[in-house]
């Protein structure tokens, strides 16, 4: 009778219970990847700016984003 929803509910809860654990982890990783990509993009743009006027700006050189 109501057996099928029972199994569904059990499965639901294992995932629900885990949301506070895995969701922040994915969020953190997403933000870090976004930050890293943005930094590289900004770095590339600065490189393009710098190239005509002098020595190329390496990735390790100072440059405030």
């Amino acid at each position: 009778m109501s057996q099928a929803p029972d199994v569904q509910i059990l499965a639901d809860h294992s995932a629900l219970l885990a949301i506070p654990a895995f969701a922040p982890a994915i969020l953190v990783v997403a933000v870090v990847i976004w930050v890293a990509r943005r930094d590289r993009r900004l770095g590339d743009e600065e490189d393009e700016d710098a190239t005509p006027s002098g020595p190329s700006a390496g990735p390790d050189q100072d440059g405030t984003p």
Partner: peptide, 23 residues
């Protein structure tokens, strides 16, 4: 179930935001 999803999602956003903020 909807309440739980909302509640736990809020909790997860708070935890995630707190971690990011501290970092």
């Amino acid at each position: 179930a909807l309440n739980e999803v909302i509640g736990l999602s809020v909790a997860s956003v708070v935890v995630g935001a707190a971690l990011l903020w501290i970092g």
